[in-house]
Amino acid sequence: MTTPVLELTNISKRFGEGEARVDALSAVSLRVVRGELVALIGPSGSGKSTLVSIAGALLTPSEGRLYLNGEDITDSPGQQRARLRLREIGFIFQGSNLISYLTGREQLLFIADLIGLPNGDARRQAYRLLDELGMARRADHYPEELSGGERQRIAIARALMNDPALILADEPTASLDSRRGRAVVELLAREVHERDKAAVLVTHDERLLDLCDRVVHIADGRLTGMPVGAGSAAM
């Protein structure tokens, strides 16, 4: 069996102390492998965002271990986490996650600049991604000139620009109508499968679940539904 790209073992996260203590996550374990799109679904306040923040090396857990590509990064210092996020993880956020003063193409070239990709390679890769996501023609528009669906397609392209192992999408369809939202997730699913990435899609829209390989339910900080690592692609 291949090493999972993302592995969380017995992750707990508490906020506050004493009376004000909130258990956002309790003993959560999750494995995501290459080529697998896992949907994380749950109501507001269930701990979805906390889980994706920990998986994205943005937040340290109170207990448990976090592995990325088999490497324990639970206690990695801030700078190393930033580097991991830059090199190994592609993020797609809800709503306004593009940089307002960069065109679609520049959103991608910015990532290339951060990771120090040579100019020619960066331009070729940006073009290929934009083309794949049907944004080649709209690539030189600013976010304010793009529709919500177009913006999220640019965001997907940006998340792939660093050729990450793991893609984390935090409610990417929240600001879209259901038809456009579905189109965006279809694109995401296609990229994950074609490029053999591991991906977690946080959503509360059950109509999207058929596009995902596995569904994990979360409620009150605990995972329910499919047992850990029991997804078909994980076998």
Partner: peptide
């Protein structure tokens, strides 16, 4: 804080 990018309502 980079965490600000994550939707807090979830």
């Amino acid at each position: 804080d980079p965490l600000d990018a994550i939707n807090k309502a979830g």
